[in-house]
Design a protein around this nucleic acid. Structure first.
Lengths: 335, 335
DNA sequence: AAGATGCTTGCAAGCGCTTACACCTCTGCC
DNA sequence: GGCAGAGGTGTAAGCGCTTGCAAGCATCTT
């Protein structure tokens, strides 16, 4: 048995020496467990325990050019509608032995590019984009980089590589139908200035008008959207020429803020004013009144991401470039 | 000029060939910019641009045994009070060329251990723990691992390595004084079942009683805490023998839920019932009424983390093991 | 009985960088 | 003019792992 040198971490070779095999075999034990003979595996296990060995994934990544590192790029996490999905994704990915590098892109393309380059420098196995990347140059760079790129939440017409998500347009249409069916006639929209929210809003308006309604009025708000915008938006309603009977909010936070302000003003929700949100945050089901919202299945997205990554790792060609996980309108008390 | 081989990423050596220097010099250009001659640097820059070179940080990490990878372990992100701090931390760290691996530990020690091992296998430069790790065995493992460990938010009596945060006990004391000074007499606490929240609650009760008050009543709620718990807790108040005049909530979400439910029940906040929160989320300042809360400066924590890491990287011994960034009670309308 | 086959394992050549050390060229100085 | 010292650069030996190739051996097959 080699002297237990406490100054540096044990290496594969030391484990191998203890188990009386070559380091290649120990490496196989980790990476292709089926290959080593059961008796050998047992000796290796004992040796690992004896040495307290922890694989050096950096060295492994260099040798195999597979880093098991996934970069997840997201605008922010302090107040992000993506957090549920992100959490599910991190859980799912780390369960398979990957680590997730979380990178914040903010709302500027410059930061996005910086984070993409950082991810590329790490030789990540995949870059996961959440939201929509509009800039053509960035899309081109990503496409040329040959790294797996998964766009989530949106479903672009021409994905960079693979897209897993839902159609914001379809949501806009569905909401328009839903509210018309419920008898509302004068919708007003609160639209965060993000490509995604704008797409939903445009689709909503389009369908609303197509169904014979008047073009909905709208306020725009900054991203990330938050509670305060809802309160403020409610107050803005007073200036509208025609008072809405339902407010379609770009996020559940906006909806919540709007409801609180309406209630303080003595306006019953949904009695005198109905409200819908987006994202189906946990709070939406707990609010008083509970908030009608659009649910996106983050766990499903996470599973699909995992599946795609597994197939890619195995070298399988993927059939689809777009995977639609759908959405559901959750009808609750507020509309 | 070497043929632009489109099938693999350019290596340092190719840049070196184009710039007509050795690869060691290009490496120095990246890692110790001051060392290479200005004229050489210019040639290298041109070569980098010409080849479209992106450093391979994995190889660099192996060679230098410095990964520039930081693991941030956090219970969750979907509904986490740590998110503001995490965001500031990720921003600050990536500005210095680090990447942050976000690992979710949930509420069980088993997951924590798994994530610690994963981080250790990546040979991260540091592990950042958010919250308090209570288990002695885990603390010992971490201490033996020789990796930089930064505990944030809490200030343990005996940090594993370095702690950056504030004293939950001090917050409990301060809140007790604050509410007594404001004239409240019958506080009730909503306490999330986390070591941190319990520490604040215990300190609050201790000081309250020391000041001559009756021992405060309390409800416990699961973590992560959320809006719904606030609503539910408000309803629970009815069963109390003596009705509180102020509810001290373990998070701003709980406070918000409680306020909404009180208002729906026609109870004026703070008129008939005062409320305090914790965390000073953006929403706390936007809520109606605005919520009195405890602010923790996440940006300050992030800066300190960065400073510590920089010093460690430079090999400097740190003077302090605990860095107290303090806290502030933000007095607003709700209490 | 000889060759074919399949299962395990070892050998050794990398993976793309970093860095200690040595070397060379200039300056500045006595 | 010779020498010390500083500034730049190159050489080459790793960093700790993976994996193609080949060899050894036991089991089949004909």
């Amino acid at each position: 048995m080699p002297p237990t040198d406490r100054t540096r971490a044990p290496r594969l070779e030391e484990v191998a020496a203890v188990a009386n095999v070559s380091s290649a075999t120990v490496s196989r034990y980790f990476n292709s467990p089926g290959v080593v003979a059961p008796a050998t595996a047992q000796r290796i296990e004992a040796a690992i325990a004896a040495t307290g060995y922890l694989p050096n994934l950096t060295a492994g990544a260099l040798a195999s050019s597979r880093s098991r590192l996934i970069a997840a790029l997201v605008p922010d996490i302090a107040q992000s509608i993506f957090n549920d999905t992100m959490e599910a994704m991190i859980d799912a990915l780390s369960a398979e032995g990957n680590s997730v590098i979380l990178a914040l892109t903010g709302t500027t393309d410059a930061r996005l590019v910086a984070q993409i380059n950082a991810a590329l420098s790490r030789r990540v196995d995949a870059i996961i984009l959440t939201g929509i990347v509009a800039d053509a140059a960035i899309r081109a760079q990503l496409r040329n980089s040959r790294v797996t790129v998964i766009e989530t939440w949106g479903l672009p017409d021409d994905p960079i590589d693979i897209a897993i998500g839902f159609s914001h347009r379809a949501i806009g249409y569905a909401l328009a139908e839903f509210l018309r069916d419920r008898g509302y006639r004068r919708p007003h929209m609160i639209v965060p200035r993000s490509t995604r929210a704008e797409r939903r809003a445009a689709a909503f308006a389009e369908r609303w008008v197509a169904n014979g309604g008047d073009a909905p009025t709208r306020f725009e708000v900054a991203v990330p959207s938050h509670f305060g915008q809802g309160r403020q938006s409610y107050r803005g309603l007073a200036d509208l020429a025609v008072q809405p009977d339902v407010v379609v909010c770009g996020s559940d936070w906006i909806a919540q803020g709007l409801i609180v302000e309406a209630q303080v003003a003595g306006v019953a929700v949904p009695g005198r004013l109905a409200v819908t949100g987006f994202g189906n945050l946990r709070m939406a089901g707990d609010m008083r009144p509970t908030i009608t919202s659009v649910d996106v299945d983050g766990t499903r997205i996470a599973h699909e991401v995992n599946r795609v990554l597994r197939l890619r790792a195995a070298g399988t060609k993927l059939a689809e470039r777009s995977i639609d996980v759908g959405f559901r309108i959750i009808a609750r008390e507020s509309a």
